[in-house]
Design a protein around this nucleic acid. Sequence first.
DNA 1: ATAATTCCTGTAGTCACTATAGGTTCAAGC
DNA 2: GCTTGAACCTATAGTGACTACAGGAATTAT
Lengths: 144, 144
Amino acid sequence: MERVFSIGKLAEASGSKVETIRYYEQIGLLPEPERNAGNQRRYTARHYERLVFVLHARDLGLSIDAIRQLIDLSQHPDLPCRDADDIAQRRLEDVRQRIARLKLLEAELERTLSSCSHGTIAECKVIEALAQCGACERHHRPPR
Amino acid sequence: MERVFSIGKLAEASGSKVETIRYYEQIGLLPEPERNAGNQRRYTARHYERLVFVLHARDLGLSIDAIRQLIDLSQHPDLPCRDADDIAQRRLEDVRQRIARLKLLEAELERTLSSCSHGTIAECKVIEALAQCGACERHHRPPR
DNA sequence: ATAATTCCTGTAGTCACTATAGGTTCAAGC
DNA sequence: GCTTGAACCTATAGTGACTACAGGAATTAT
Protein backbone atom coordinates (compact mmCIF):
# COMPACT_ATOMS: atom_id res chain seq x y z
CA MET A 1 0.00 0.00 0.00
CA GLU A 2 1.54 3.24 -1.16
CA ARG A 3 1.11 6.21 1.10
CA VAL A 4 -1.13 8.91 -0.37
CA PHE A 5 -1.93 12.45 0.68
CA SER A 6 -4.25 15.32 -0.12
CA ILE A 7 -3.68 18.30 -2.40
CA GLY A 8 -3.29 20.50 0.65
CA LYS A 9 -0.47 18.38 1.99
CA LEU A 10 1.18 18.32 -1.41
CA ALA A 11 0.99 22.09 -1.63
CA GLU A 12 2.48 22.44 1.81
CA ALA A 13 5.21 19.88 1.18
CA SER A 14 6.22 21.47 -2.11
CA GLY A 15 5.93 25.10 -1.06
CA SER A 16 3.38 25.80 -3.76
CA LYS A 17 -0.37 26.41 -3.67
CA VAL A 18 -3.40 24.23 -4.07
CA GLU A 19 -4.65 26.30 -7.00
CA THR A 20 -1.31 26.08 -8.77
CA ILE A 21 -1.30 22.31 -8.48
CA ARG A 22 -4.78 22.04 -9.93
CA TYR A 23 -3.70 24.42 -12.70
CA TYR A 24 -0.64 22.32 -13.55
CA GLU A 25 -2.83 19.26 -13.72
CA GLN A 26 -5.26 21.06 -15.99
CA ILE A 27 -2.55 22.04 -18.48
CA GLY A 28 -1.01 18.60 -18.36
CA LEU A 29 2.20 19.30 -16.44
CA LEU A 30 1.12 16.96 -13.68
CA PRO A 31 -0.61 13.61 -14.28
CA GLU A 32 -4.15 13.24 -13.01
CA PRO A 33 -3.99 11.55 -9.62
CA GLU A 34 -6.35 8.90 -8.33
CA ARG A 35 -9.41 10.05 -6.40
CA ASN A 36 -10.76 8.74 -3.13
CA ALA A 37 -14.39 7.77 -2.53
CA GLY A 38 -15.31 11.43 -2.03
CA ASN A 39 -13.71 12.53 -5.32
CA GLN A 40 -10.71 14.15 -3.67
CA ARG A 41 -7.27 13.90 -5.26
CA ARG A 42 -4.84 11.44 -3.64
CA TYR A 43 -1.16 12.01 -4.42
CA THR A 44 1.88 9.78 -4.13
CA ALA A 45 5.60 10.47 -3.80
CA ARG A 46 5.87 10.35 -7.59
CA HIS A 47 3.54 13.32 -7.90
CA TYR A 48 5.60 15.18 -5.35
CA GLU A 49 8.78 14.56 -7.34
CA ARG A 50 7.24 15.68 -10.59
CA LEU A 51 5.84 18.80 -8.95
CA VAL A 52 9.21 19.71 -7.45
CA PHE A 53 10.77 19.29 -10.88
CA VAL A 54 8.24 21.69 -12.37
CA LEU A 55 8.61 24.20 -9.56
CA HIS A 56 12.40 24.22 -9.80
CA ALA A 57 12.20 24.74 -13.52
CA ARG A 58 9.78 27.63 -13.00
CA ASP A 59 12.12 29.11 -10.40
CA LEU A 60 14.83 29.04 -13.06
CA GLY A 61 12.47 31.00 -15.26
CA LEU A 62 11.68 28.24 -17.75
CA SER A 63 8.37 28.65 -19.50
CA ILE A 64 5.60 26.11 -19.15
CA ASP A 65 6.31 25.12 -22.70
CA ALA A 66 10.00 24.51 -22.07
CA ILE A 67 9.12 22.44 -19.02
CA ARG A 68 6.74 20.37 -21.07
CA GLN A 69 9.57 19.68 -23.50
CA LEU A 70 11.88 18.62 -20.66
CA ILE A 71 9.23 16.29 -19.29
CA ASP A 72 8.74 14.76 -22.72
CA LEU A 73 12.49 14.31 -23.03
CA SER A 74 12.75 12.65 -19.64
CA GLN A 75 10.35 9.99 -20.87
CA HIS A 76 12.98 8.91 -23.39
CA PRO A 77 16.09 8.15 -21.35
CA ASP A 78 18.00 6.73 -24.32
CA LEU A 79 17.93 9.86 -26.44
CA PRO A 80 20.97 12.12 -26.38
CA CYS A 81 20.47 15.01 -23.97
CA ARG A 82 21.37 17.71 -26.46
CA ASP A 83 17.82 19.07 -26.57
CA ALA A 84 17.67 19.36 -22.80
CA ASP A 85 21.02 21.14 -22.77
CA ASP A 86 19.81 23.51 -25.45
CA ILE A 87 16.85 24.52 -23.35
CA ALA A 88 19.08 25.35 -20.40
CA GLN A 89 21.60 27.06 -22.66
CA ARG A 90 19.00 29.29 -24.24
CA ARG A 91 17.68 30.13 -20.83
CA LEU A 92 21.18 31.04 -19.68
CA GLU A 93 21.61 33.39 -22.60
CA ASP A 94 18.26 34.95 -21.85
CA VAL A 95 19.20 35.44 -18.20
CA ARG A 96 22.47 37.10 -19.23
CA GLN A 97 20.67 39.44 -21.57
CA ARG A 98 18.23 40.39 -18.89
CA ILE A 99 21.01 41.11 -16.44
CA ALA A 100 22.72 43.35 -18.99
CA ARG A 101 19.51 45.21 -19.69
CA LEU A 102 18.68 45.64 -16.03
CA LYS A 103 22.14 47.02 -15.36
CA LEU A 104 21.58 49.70 -17.96
CA LEU A 105 18.28 50.46 -16.29
CA GLU A 106 19.92 50.62 -12.92
CA ALA A 107 22.46 53.11 -14.20
CA GLU A 108 19.79 55.28 -15.76
CA LEU A 109 17.65 55.26 -12.64
CA GLU A 110 20.70 56.11 -10.50
CA ARG A 111 21.61 58.96 -12.81
CA THR A 112 18.07 60.25 -12.82
CA LEU A 113 17.70 60.09 -9.06
CA SER A 114 21.08 61.61 -8.26
CA SER A 115 20.39 64.59 -10.49
CA CYS A 116 17.19 65.42 -8.64
CA SER A 117 17.51 68.29 -6.19
CA HIS A 118 14.29 67.36 -4.40
CA GLY A 119 12.55 70.63 -5.02
CA THR A 120 9.10 70.92 -6.60
CA ILE A 121 7.55 68.82 -9.34
CA ALA A 122 8.22 71.63 -11.80
CA GLU A 123 11.96 71.15 -11.45
CA CYS A 124 11.87 67.40 -10.85
CA LYS A 125 14.57 65.62 -12.82
CA VAL A 126 12.83 62.29 -12.53
CA ILE A 127 9.83 63.45 -14.47
CA GLU A 128 11.98 65.50 -16.79
CA ALA A 129 14.17 62.52 -17.60
CA LEU A 130 11.14 60.51 -18.59
CA ALA A 131 9.86 63.25 -20.84
CA GLN A 132 13.17 63.58 -22.67
CA CYS A 133 15.15 61.08 -24.59
CA GLY A 134 18.24 60.47 -22.47
CA ALA A 135 19.88 57.08 -22.87
CA CYS A 136 16.92 55.69 -24.67
CA GLU A 137 17.20 52.89 -27.19
CA ARG A 138 13.73 53.36 -28.56
CA HIS A 139 13.56 54.30 -32.18
CA HIS A 140 11.59 57.50 -32.15
CA ARG A 141 11.66 61.09 -33.43
CA PRO A 142 9.17 63.92 -33.41
CA PRO A 143 6.54 63.68 -36.15
CA ARG A 144 7.43 65.89 -39.07
CA MET B 1 -3.48 76.00 -37.16
CA GLU B 2 -1.72 73.26 -35.21
CA ARG B 3 -0.32 70.44 -37.25
CA VAL B 4 -2.10 67.12 -36.65
CA PHE B 5 -1.36 63.54 -37.67
CA SER B 6 -2.88 60.11 -37.68
CA ILE B 7 -2.48 57.29 -35.18
CA GLY B 8 -0.29 55.43 -37.66
CA LYS B 9 2.12 58.37 -37.90
CA LEU B 10 2.14 58.69 -34.12
CA ALA B 11 2.95 55.02 -33.76
CA GLU B 12 5.75 55.30 -36.26
CA ALA B 13 7.15 58.48 -34.76
CA SER B 14 7.12 57.07 -31.23
CA GLY B 15 8.32 53.59 -32.06
CA SER B 16 5.20 52.02 -30.58
CA LYS B 17 2.16 50.38 -32.13
CA VAL B 18 -1.25 51.58 -33.14
CA GLU B 19 -2.94 49.07 -30.84
CA THR B 20 -0.82 50.12 -27.89
CA ILE B 21 -1.75 53.76 -28.40
CA ARG B 22 -5.45 52.96 -28.49
CA TYR B 23 -4.97 50.82 -25.39
CA TYR B 24 -3.23 53.64 -23.52
CA GLU B 25 -6.07 55.96 -24.45
CA GLN B 26 -8.60 53.42 -23.23
CA ILE B 27 -6.98 53.10 -19.82
CA GLY B 28 -6.54 56.85 -19.52
CA LEU B 29 -2.78 57.20 -19.94
CA LEU B 30 -3.26 59.28 -23.05
CA PRO B 31 -5.94 61.98 -23.42
CA GLU B 32 -8.62 61.39 -26.02
CA PRO B 33 -7.60 63.24 -29.19
CA GLU B 34 -9.87 65.20 -31.49
CA ARG B 35 -11.43 63.33 -34.38
CA ASN B 36 -11.67 64.36 -38.01
CA ALA B 37 -14.87 64.28 -40.08
CA GLY B 38 -14.44 60.54 -40.65
CA ASN B 39 -14.04 59.77 -36.92
CA GLN B 40 -10.31 59.16 -37.10
CA ARG B 41 -8.03 60.31 -34.30
CA ARG B 42 -5.95 63.43 -34.96
CA TYR B 43 -2.91 63.88 -32.74
CA THR B 44 -0.76 66.91 -31.95
CA ALA B 45 2.80 67.32 -30.69
CA ARG B 46 1.45 67.32 -27.12
CA HIS B 47 0.14 63.80 -27.58
CA TYR B 48 3.49 62.74 -28.94
CA GLU B 49 5.27 64.11 -25.88
CA ARG B 50 2.93 62.41 -23.47
CA LEU B 51 3.27 59.12 -25.31
CA VAL B 52 7.07 59.30 -25.26
CA PHE B 53 6.89 59.95 -21.53
CA VAL B 54 4.76 56.86 -21.03
CA LEU B 55 6.93 54.70 -23.28
CA HIS B 56 10.13 55.76 -21.54
CA ALA B 57 8.60 55.01 -18.18
CA ARG B 58 7.52 51.56 -19.43
CA ASP B 59 11.05 50.96 -20.76
CA LEU B 60 12.29 51.65 -17.24
CA GLY B 61 9.89 48.98 -16.03
CA LEU B 62 7.41 51.26 -14.29
CA SER B 63 3.94 49.79 -13.99
CA ILE B 64 0.98 51.45 -15.62
CA ASP B 65 -0.16 52.44 -12.17
CA ALA B 66 3.15 54.08 -11.29
CA ILE B 67 3.05 56.00 -14.57
CA ARG B 68 -0.45 57.17 -13.79
CA GLN B 69 0.82 58.50 -10.47
CA LEU B 70 3.67 60.34 -12.19
CA ILE B 71 1.28 61.89 -14.67
CA ASP B 72 -0.98 63.00 -11.85
CA LEU B 73 2.03 64.48 -10.07
CA SER B 74 3.15 66.34 -13.16
CA GLN B 75 -0.20 68.11 -13.19
CA HIS B 76 0.72 69.74 -9.87
CA PRO B 77 4.05 71.51 -10.51
CA ASP B 78 4.07 73.23 -7.12
CA LEU B 79 4.05 70.09 -5.02
CA PRO B 80 7.37 68.80 -3.69
CA CYS B 81 8.75 66.06 -5.90
CA ARG B 82 9.25 63.58 -3.06
CA ASP B 83 6.52 61.26 -4.35
CA ALA B 84 8.04 61.15 -7.82
CA ASP B 85 11.45 60.42 -6.36
CA ASP B 86 9.96 57.64 -4.26
CA ILE B 87 8.55 55.95 -7.33
CA ALA B 88 11.92 55.98 -9.04
CA GLN B 89 13.66 54.93 -5.83
CA ARG B 90 11.38 51.95 -5.33
CA ARG B 91 11.90 50.99 -8.93
CA LEU B 92 15.66 51.20 -8.48
CA GLU B 93 15.49 48.87 -5.50
CA ASP B 94 13.33 46.48 -7.47
CA VAL B 95 15.81 46.49 -10.36
CA ARG B 96 18.68 45.76 -7.98
CA GLN B 97 16.81 42.87 -6.46
CA ARG B 98 16.06 41.43 -9.86
CA ILE B 99 19.69 41.68 -10.87
CA ALA B 100 20.75 39.88 -7.71
CA ARG B 101 18.21 37.13 -8.28
CA LEU B 102 19.14 36.72 -11.93
CA LYS B 103 22.81 36.43 -11.03
CA LEU B 104 22.00 33.54 -8.72
CA LEU B 105 20.05 31.99 -11.55
CA GLU B 106 22.92 32.51 -13.95
CA ALA B 107 25.29 30.78 -11.57
CA GLU B 108 22.96 27.83 -11.14
CA LEU B 109 22.39 27.43 -14.86
CA GLU B 110 26.12 27.65 -15.49
CA ARG B 111 26.85 25.05 -12.83
CA THR B 112 24.14 22.77 -14.17
CA LEU B 113 25.29 23.07 -17.77
CA SER B 114 28.97 22.65 -17.05
CA SER B 115 28.33 19.45 -15.12
CA CYS B 116 26.52 17.88 -18.06
CA SER B 117 28.61 15.42 -20.00
CA HIS B 118 26.25 15.49 -23.00
CA GLY B 119 25.43 11.82 -22.95
CA THR B 120 21.90 10.45 -22.87
CA ILE B 121 18.84 11.81 -21.15
CA ALA B 122 19.22 9.14 -18.48
CA GLU B 123 22.46 10.71 -17.28
CA CYS B 124 21.57 14.30 -18.08
CA LYS B 125 22.60 16.65 -15.29
CA VAL B 126 20.24 19.36 -16.44
CA ILE B 127 17.18 17.24 -15.85
CA GLU B 128 18.70 15.73 -12.74
CA ALA B 129 19.40 19.14 -11.26
CA LEU B 130 15.79 20.12 -11.73
CA ALA B 131 14.56 16.95 -10.09
CA GLN B 132 16.75 17.43 -7.04
CA CYS B 133 17.03 20.26 -4.63
CA GLY B 134 20.41 21.86 -5.30
CA ALA B 135 20.70 25.53 -4.50
CA CYS B 136 17.00 25.96 -4.21
CA GLU B 137 15.43 28.59 -1.97
CA ARG B 138 12.00 27.07 -2.09
CA HIS B 139 10.69 25.90 1.21
CA HIS B 140 9.87 22.27 0.56
CA ARG B 141 10.45 18.79 1.96
CA PRO B 142 9.10 15.37 1.07
CA PRO B 143 5.64 14.64 2.47
CA ARG B 144 5.86 12.62 5.66
C1' DA C 1 -23.26 15.58 16.43
C1' DT C 2 -21.73 19.63 15.12
C1' DA C 3 -18.51 22.96 13.64
C1' DA C 4 -14.47 24.19 11.21
C1' DT C 5 -11.62 23.16 7.72
C1' DT C 6 -10.44 21.35 3.40
C1' DC C 7 -11.77 19.94 -0.83
C1' DC C 8 -14.52 20.02 -5.42
C1' DT C 9 -15.85 22.36 -10.14
C1' DG C 10 -16.34 26.14 -12.95
C1' DT C 11 -15.75 30.68 -14.03
C1' DA C 12 -13.78 35.21 -14.01
C1' DG C 13 -10.02 38.36 -13.00
C1' DT C 14 -5.03 39.88 -13.25
C1' DC C 15 -1.25 42.64 -16.28
C1' DA C 16 -0.04 44.82 -20.35
C1' DC C 17 -0.75 44.26 -24.22
C1' DT C 18 -1.75 41.64 -29.05
C1' DA C 19 -4.73 39.72 -32.48
C1' DT C 20 -8.86 39.17 -34.98
C1' DA C 21 -13.31 40.20 -37.37
C1' DG C 22 -16.06 43.02 -39.87
C1' DG C 23 -16.70 47.25 -41.34
C1' DT C 24 -15.50 52.57 -42.79
C1' DT C 25 -12.48 56.19 -44.48
C1' DC C 26 -8.61 57.97 -46.66
C1' DA C 27 -4.85 58.67 -50.23
C1' DA C 28 -2.67 57.53 -54.58
C1' DG C 29 -2.68 56.38 -59.21
C1' DC C 30 -5.12 56.45 -63.56
C1' DG D 1 -13.79 61.31 -61.02
C1' DC D 2 -13.06 56.54 -59.96
C1' DT D 3 -10.96 52.62 -58.27
C1' DT D 4 -8.06 50.17 -55.41
C1' DG D 5 -5.52 49.27 -51.47
C1' DA D 6 -3.85 50.88 -47.23
C1' DA D 7 -4.99 52.71 -42.98
C1' DC D 8 -8.43 53.45 -39.82
C1' DC D 9 -12.68 52.35 -36.68
C1' DT D 10 -15.09 49.45 -32.72
C1' DA D 11 -15.65 45.49 -30.13
C1' DT D 12 -14.23 41.26 -28.56
C1' DA D 13 -11.19 37.52 -27.48
C1' DG D 14 -6.64 35.64 -26.65
C1' DT D 15 -1.90 35.52 -24.32
C1' DG D 16 0.94 33.44 -19.97
C1' DA D 17 0.87 31.83 -15.65
C1' DC D 18 -1.47 31.93 -12.46
C1' DT D 19 -5.04 33.83 -8.58
C1' DA D 20 -9.54 34.55 -6.68
C1' DC D 21 -14.10 33.64 -6.10
C1' DA D 22 -18.84 31.31 -5.65
C1' DG D 23 -21.46 27.66 -4.17
C1' DG D 24 -21.34 23.36 -2.77
C1' DA D 25 -19.56 18.46 -0.87
C1' DA D 26 -16.34 15.87 1.96
C1' DT D 27 -13.34 15.41 5.73
C1' DT D 28 -11.45 16.29 10.31
C1' DA D 29 -11.55 17.98 14.97
C1' DT D 30 -14.04 18.76 19.06
